[in-house]
Simulated assay, not measured.
Amino acid sequence: MKKEYWFVVITYIAMQLSSIVGMPIFMLIGSLSGMPADELKVKAAAYWIVFSFLAALSLILILMRKDMRERIDTRNQASIPTSILWAIAGVFLALIAQSLAGSIEQMFGVKSESENTQNLISLIYEVPMVIFVTSVIGPILEEILFRKIIFGSLNKRFNFFISALISSVIFGLAHGELEHLLLYTAMGFTFAFLYAQTGRILVSMVAHIAMNTLVIILQVLYREDIEKILDTAQAFIGGLL
């Protein structure tokens, strides 16, 4: 991999681990400002997520500026209209992949509810700004790292399937929910397919952003109703399997 790619990987890992140092600092600031103790930890976690993700995105865009300035061989890219269609279709493909993977997980006794998602929803209720991180900044960072850098680097040495599988498993492991590894891997595989199919990282990025935004907004507004619908849909798909 290119040197700047390694710096991007290090930046992403540092962002994920930064709460160890960052949250105590934000909690101290909150306590000094008179914030109630019962709100302190949640608010600190929410604001640190916003700060750390924005800081990481800014640094990664700086690290990738040379890469973005390099002339792109448009012969290996889909046309803009085709890319737009793939981005739209990618949202549905990702949702289908997520539903199928969730159904398979349920067959093995894994609960459909994601702890990560529920924690993020709770933070959004406390600090609505977090929705921008989960819906936009997070997907941008993940597509740059897991698709453009990891999948892209692997795909220069291996075929699509091996490259997509390895990068998607890493993508799943990075979410820290081993019980939902299949679900995250399926989603990662879908986004890798979109990137490989069009040659444009913006396509997988837009599909990822749109899917996250849709899921987060629906869960915030219709949390209980969505859980019932997903359970019913997954039970139906599981019955077909």
Rank of each mutant, 00 (worst) to 15 (best):
residue 125 Y to L: 08
residue 62 I to Q: 06
residue 50 V to S: 00
residue 9 V to H: 02
residue 172 G to E: 04
residue 16 Q to I: 09
residue 145 L to P: 08
residue 17 L to R: 07
residue 168 S to M: 02
residue 61 L to Y: 02
residue 17 L to A: 15
residue 6 W to Q: 10
residue 203 V to Y: 06
residue 139 P to T: 00
residue 183 L to V: 14
residue 101 A to M: 05
residue 235 A to I: 09
residue 88 I to Y: 01
residue 167 S to E: 05
residue 17 L to D: 11
residue 24 P to D: 11
residue 221 L to H: 02
residue 140 I to V: 03
residue 179 E to I: 11
residue 106 Q to T: 08
residue 152 G to Y: 06
residue 60 I to S: 02
residue 184 Y to I: 06
residue 218 L to E: 14
residue 107 M to G: 15
residue 112 S to Q: 14
residue 95 L to Y: 03
residue 31 S to H: 13
residue 90 G to P: 05
residue 26 F to S: 08
residue 113 E to V: 12
residue 51 F to V: 12
residue 12 Y to V: 15
residue 187 M to W: 04
residue 89 A to W: 02
residue 112 S to V: 13
residue 86 W to S: 14
residue 170 I to L: 08
residue 140 I to R: 01
residue 182 L to W: 03
residue 195 Y to L: 14
residue 34 G to D: 00
residue 203 V to Q: 12
residue 108 F to S: 04
residue 62 I to S: 10
residue 174 A to F: 03
residue 89 A to T: 07
residue 66 K to V: 12
residue 219 Q to W: 05
residue 140 I to T: 00
residue 226 I to C: 11
residue 162 I to G: 07
residue 99 S to V: 15
residue 213 T to W: 03
residue 16 Q to E: 11
residue 205 M to A: 05
residue 219 Q to N: 14
residue 169 V to S: 03
residue 4 E to A: 13
residue 22 G to V: 07
residue 97 A to E: 00
residue 29 I to A: 10
residue 65 R to P: 08
residue 28 L to Y: 14
residue 20 I to K: 02
residue 174 A to H: 02
residue 79 S to L: 04
residue 103 S to I: 02
residue 149 I to E: 08
residue 240 L to C: 06
residue 125 Y to E: 12
residue 178 L to W: 09
residue 6 W to H: 12
residue 155 N to A: 14
